[in-house]
Design a protein around this nucleic acid. Sequence first.
DNA 1: ACGGTCTGTCATCAAACTGTAACCATGCTG
DNA 2: CAGCATGGTTACAGTTTGATGACAGACCGT
Lengths: 247, 247
Amino acid sequence: MMPSAEVNGQVAVRGSAIKPHILVVEDETALVEILRYNLEKEGFEVAVAVDGEEALAAINERPPDLVVLDWMLPLVSGLEICRQVRRKPETRDLPIIMLTARGEEADRVRGLEVGADDYVAKPFSPSELIARVRAVLRRSKPSTSGDLLTYAGIVMDLSSHRVLRDGRPIHLGPTEFRLLRFLMERPGRVYSREQLLDAVWGRDIYVEVRTVDVHIRRLRKALNGPNDIDLIRTVRSAGYALDELAQ
Amino acid sequence: MMPSAEVNGQVAVRGSAIKPHILVVEDETALVEILRYNLEKEGFEVAVAVDGEEALAAINERPPDLVVLDWMLPLVSGLEICRQVRRKPETRDLPIIMLTARGEEADRVRGLEVGADDYVAKPFSPSELIARVRAVLRRSKPSTSGDLLTYAGIVMDLSSHRVLRDGRPIHLGPTEFRLLRFLMERPGRVYSREQLLDAVWGRDIYVEVRTVDVHIRRLRKALNGPNDIDLIRTVRSAGYALDELAQ
DNA sequence: ACGGTCTGTCATCAAACTGTAACCATGCTG
DNA sequence: CAGCATGGTTACAGTTTGATGACAGACCGT
């Protein structure tokens, strides 16, 4: 029993796996609100894009775990988004559920052709969509979330929550673990403190930006033995990156 | 339209039409054949080594993109190979997937210790292995790719915030970084100091125009080694440009 | 209730970066 | 060539930014 989970969003995120992050791409605001409400109620973290360009930007910025994508969209059609997402190696396996006005067979075929993972015809019940989301996530998990992350002598076993550096076990607190995990998923890339807060703490949690510094410090302390190179690179006025090369 | 994207691993690597090169290290010939068949069907190029010594020789000869490595091997154990591969800087980041007879916890930990990237317990389905191979390759790729700006021997990697000139790393302060970035986006074109102030400092920030000179100077200093040509061209009474040609 | 652990925030210190001004060098014009 | 105009260079003081250590509150298992 964890009563605090009901009270404090922060607690719900800790301990258990990170909330699956879902991007809803839909231009009808009424529908967006329904979706957001229902998905959040089910414990998903929801981001919204109202047109194609916004969607692509959001996906590039921070790839979600799943995209719910309207077929008809302003600026860039759902079909085209799907195609573009599939074209990039990083997002190639990003699960996509298409929303379409009619359940016509032809549309369905075209949707699957461009690589949607599932397909829900409007109108639909929220519970139906949730079920599909769950199903698609379940299907995609094993391949998407490999158990191991390795980079520059650091090994993270996500399932057993263990971290080694050059074979030596490293103890990390929960926040440091998630922080390292996030950095390990795209080593070399620089993330601003704001991005790190969003990704590691959660989009809707308010903490002081400088708190990131402190956790970076703690991560460094834990990770670096006396004779190790510091793998966390500070980029002044930009953020931090995990990086093999010297500063 | 590219329906094959869903089916064919080769397409995933599209762009460079080079097949990923996989070394399978396994002594059971039956298993080797199964692996070879399946991997080749998926568009990978497969090499085989049947014992540890052969494996090390093959890796030194031509480092593959990924190694599928049996835990139990004649002559040199998989564990030992892994260790040796990790020890050498050139192969330090070579992705390794371990094949192991039992999924026992102790083995798993030892596998982690030597730095395998993933871990598949026998017996396994070919498709499972393929999925892992894909996942590991996908994970190991992105470090090399980012949004790059390139001109005249200068490479700016925006996502990792790194600058190289002829392969040498260049350290720039934030302002110099933005300045160079702006110039690199339209090399050859001349910008007045006012334009540079607008673009690099921001439209509504007031600084002395001559400040641009100083930052140009700092940029030059950082960019030009002792024997390099100055790539920043001064156009008297007009401004500055990034330019390959001599002054 | 009690120690231990984990977190977020602050205050402080050190280092890096920035803008400006003063002065020097070079080019241009008559 | 003198005299102005423009750009180069340097020094420096002030500001910004990051690192670090300390600390109080929350939470956990006992």
